[in-house]
């Protein structure tokens, strides 16, 4: 009898937890809709959005470029090791390019963006809420969602694909450095096989689509968690952590869905 009661309590709590998460998702969706509808200010006074592109994009450049370079270099090292066993070392360029453009570029850049820019956005908005700056703005008849949140959202969405492209480009360069300069794969083969195998529409454009989707997801989560954070120090810090964790999981889950749609004969390939 004791066990049944305890079990029941666990189940109730689980149910309540699931319900509250679903409720929260609904709330977040309405927030996104409101944000998009009221993006007029962010677009008309583009200055505001430009400032946010700076904070989200430019300040993430270093980590993106350096990480891209290292990832590309490691890909070349690991890739060469396996490919040369099959005498396919000339396809190293293909391996590096496709891995980056299709997957690693959008995904890793997205994860890095979530932890650097996403957490910063959450912390900033959360702190503004905690110090009553958002309420003060409301009181001055200025909609804080339009003035503070929307520019950050669009700044993130615009920055993300650019960062992903730069990550992939740096990675390919890193792969070239290690593969051609260090290991000695033939440069001509490296580039020409790459060009033959990487298709603009199917690989590069799909990669860009992925990075746009990730950008929307990460920035949406970041601004929502910040706006919804309890106005205390602990609340803001927890919200920041939640942003990073939820964004990362969302990126990986969306990546699976998008990859399944795009790259496995789901469409007609053209």
């Amino acid at each position: 009898m004791q066990i049944v009661a305890a079990l029941r309590q666990r189940l109730e709590r689980l149910g309540a937890g699931v319900t509250s998460h679903v409720w929260r998702l609904g709330f977040a969706s309405r927030f996104l809709a409101y944000l998009v509808v009221h993006s007029g200010t962010a677009l008309r006074r583009f200055r505001l959005t430009i400032a946010e592109i700076y904070f989200a994009g430019v300040l993430s450049l270093i980590i993106i470029l350096v990480s891209g370079l290292f990832v590309g270099m490691v890909l070349a090292l690991q890739g060469y090791d396996t490919l040369q066993r099959f005498g396919a070392s000339e396809s190293l360029g293909v391996l590096v390019a496709l891995s980056l453009v299709r997957e690693l570029g959008p995904v890793v850049a997205g994860l890095l963006f979530a932890s650097r820019a996403g957490s910063a956005i959450t912390a900033e908005i959360g702190l503004m809420k905690a110090t009553e700056q958002l309420s003060a703005m409301e009181m001055m008849a200025v909609d804080p969602v339009a003035r503070v949140v929307a520019p950050r959202f669009w700044g993130g969405v615009i920055s993300m694909p650019l960062l992903a492209a730069l990550f992939s480009a740096m990675g390919i360069f890193g792969g070239y450095l290690v593969g051609v300069q260090l290991i000695g794969v033939d440069a001509g083969a490296f580039w020409s096989q790459m060009q033959a195998a990487v298709d603009l529409r199917n690989d590069i454009v799909n990669g860009i689509i992925k990075s746009v989707v990730f950008g929307v997801a990460v920035t949406w989560i970041a601004v929502f968690e910040g706006y919804d954070a309890p106005p205390t120090a602990e609340g803001v810090s927890r919200a920041t952590t939640r942003t990073v964790v939820t964004s990362s999981l969302a990126i990986l889950a969306l990546d699976f869905v998008l990859t399944a749609l795009m790259f496995t004969g789901g469409g007609h390939g053209q």
């Binding site: 503004m128 110090t131 009553e132 700056q133 001055m140």
Partner: peptide, 20 residues
């Protein structure tokens, strides 16, 4: 209407709430 009303009001928050 609420925003119209608030344009005629001013509010001082507890610790100032200045935009940092």
């Amino acid at each position: 209407g609420l925003y119209r009303m608030r344009r005629k009001m001013g509010m001082l928050f507890q610790f100032g709430a200045l935009f940092t």
